[in-house]
């Protein structure tokens, strides 16, 4: 597989995981949340200032269908991370022609 093709396949897998498979993820509290509950410090958690955002809690606000809402939030989040990370790494990378130290 060429680099570009490989990249496209990787992105497709990531979008399918975030957009489709995520619906079937366990809804149990994660390790930290569970430990916080068991040992008695879960109540010290405060709501995030971002809790009212349009994609908060991995749900697209205003989309009724839970599967669609979660899938949309997952796909949008994945694309934002992709854009942010690619942009950052493109700026940080050593340009061809640079002296490698």
């Amino acid at each position: 597989m060429t680099g570009r093709r490989w990249w496209a396949v990787g992105l497709l897998v990531a979008l399918l995981v975030a957009g489709v498979a995520s619906y079937y993820a366990s809804t149990h509290p994660d390790g930290l949340e569970y430990v916080a509950e068991q040992t008695g410090f879960l109540d010290s958690a405060e709501d995030s200032a971002a809790a009212d955002g349009p994609l908060a809690d991995y749900q697209a606000r205003g989309v009724e269908d839970a599967r669609l809402s979660g899938g949309l939030a997952g796909v949008l989040g994945t694309l934002v991370v992709l854009g942010g990370a690619c942009g950052l790494f493109w700026l940080v990378r050593s340009r061809s022609g640079d002296q490698h130290s």
Binding site: W7, S22, T78, V81, L82, G84, A85, G87, F89, W90
Partner: peptide, 13 residues
Amino acid sequence: APMAGLVAAFVFA
């Protein structure tokens, strides 16, 4: 660099 961006997206997913 593009590959690293993809890895970040994959970790998010």
